[in-house]
Each structure stands twice: as C-alpha cells, then as structure tokens.
C-alpha cells in the first residue's frame, strides 16, 4: 500500500471518529435534557460536553487540513457580514473560555462586509482560539478590519506572547506538539486568492493585550 492510500484511510477514519463523537454529543444532550441533574454535577457534564466539542472541532480541522494539503478542497467564498461572523464565533467558543475563567470578546465595525469561506474560517478561528486558551491569562480578543484590500482577522491574547516564550516553536499552535494548527491556518489563508493576491498569516506581539497576536490576511 502506498502513502496516498494511507492518508486517505486516515482521513476517513477521522471522519468516522468525528461522527462517533457527534453521536456521543447528541446522547449527552438528550441525557442532560431528560435528567434532573444536581447543580454540582451539571458542571461535570458541561466539561465532558466541552471536551467532546473540542475534539469534534479538532477532527473537523484535520479533515479540512487533509483536503487542503491534498489539493482536494473547493473554496466556497461568499459575501458576509464580518461582525456577524465574529459574533457567531464568540457565541460558540465562549463556553470553552468561560470554563477556563477567561473572557472572549470581539471588536469589529458593524458595516464591514468581506468575502471568504465561512466554514473554513470558522475552523481556523476555533483552532486559533483553542490555542490562545492555553496561554491567555484573562482575555482573548478577536478583531477584523480591512487593510489594503485584505480582510485581516486578529486573534490577541494576554499570555506570555511569542517573544517571551523560551522556545518560540512551543507557543505556536502546538496542539499536541505537532504544529498542525499553524500549518492548517496558513494553508487556509493561502487557499484564498483574488485578483492575483494570496492570503497569508503573520505572528506578532499583541498591541492591545500585550500577549501574542496572530493575523490572518484574506485578499478582497
């Protein structure tokens, strides 16, 4: 069996696992709604739910990564209200932040419209936020703005920042130390092209929160 076959097999196994996780989440939700759970147990159930959700989001990321890396993903761009998009992201990720006593918020001009692949960027933002959750002390802020015909998403945290970390590599989206998260983010940005321009990412110090800042540039 050659390597290509194995990667396809891995991708479909991930897909199976993701579906299994989904089914567990459904069952847990049903259980939660049917049982009168005492308050102290609710938190535990929420943690399990939260863990399953993160696992599901990771599998989703890997599936997209597989498609992007094997050149098999058709980008689906739409014109979207960026403010609404960020509001959605904060809505689905806030439970994870609250579980860690962190504040997650966003800043964006209400009238900002931009073109991008909503589902792919949803996965990108959740990957970046899950990473920031591991480093932030108290706060993570999502921002979006237009700069020279690029839509820029910025994910800021008040953690130690890129430069303060002894080994920079360690901070970089090292979910399980594989560096996949950053690679995925980069491929996703690059998959967006328009009028001869291609998307890219940038790591820097956070100006607003003094931690790390990841910028994702999407050509408009």
């Amino acid at each position: 069996m050659n390597k290509v076959d194995i990667s396809v097999i891995l991708a479909s196994s991930i897909h199976e696992s993701k579906n299994a996780v989904g089914s567990l989440m459904y069952q847990l939700q049903t259980l939660k709604s049917e049982l009168e759970v005492p308050l102290e147990q609710v938190e535990k159930i929420n943690n399990i739910e939260e863990g399953l959700k993160q696992l599901n989001d990771e599998w989703v990321e890997y599936l997209y990564l597989f498609k992007l890396a094997s050149d098999g993903y058709d980008l689906q761009t739409e014109t979207l209200q960026v403010n609404e998009f960020l509001d959605d992201q904060v809505f689905v990720l806030s439970q994870s932040a609250t579980a860690k006593n962190l504040i997650l918020n966003y800043q964006c001009d209400e009238s900002l419209l931009a073109n991008f692949d909503e589902r792919l960027l949803t996965s990108v933002i959740s990957t970046a936020v899950y990473n920031a959750l591991r480093f932030a002390k108290s706060k993570i802020t999502l921002r979006a703005e237009l700069r020279n015909e690029f839509l820029v998403f910025l994910i800021d945290d008040d953690g130690p920042g890129f430069s303060d970390t002894e080994n920079e590599e360690e901070h970089d989206f090292l979910q399980n130390n594989t560096g996949l998260g950053l690679y995925f983010t980069e491929l996703s940005a690059q998959a967006h092209t328009n009028k001869g321009k291609q998307g890219y990412i940038e790591k820097s110090a956070s100006i607003i929160l003094n931690g790390a800042c990841l910028s994702i540039y999407i050509p408009q």
């Binding site: 897909h15 579906n19 939700q29 058709d74 589902r119």
Partner: peptide, 27 residues
C-alpha cells in the same frame, strides 16, 4: 457534515437558505 458541505455548496443552481454543521447545540 463537513464532508458533504462541498457537495451542497457546489450545487450553484439550487442552494438552501443556510447550513448548520452536525453536531450542533440547541442554542
């Protein structure tokens, strides 16, 4: 599901008003 989204989005002629990915919460 993530694996079917391209098929749905790819069908330019007839599209639903919106999508939601499985699994999703009530909220």
């Amino acid at each position: 599901a993530e694996t079917s989204i391209e098929m749905v989005m790819g069908a330019i002629e007839y599209q639903p008003d919106g999508y939601i990915s499985k699994p999703f919460s009530q909220a």
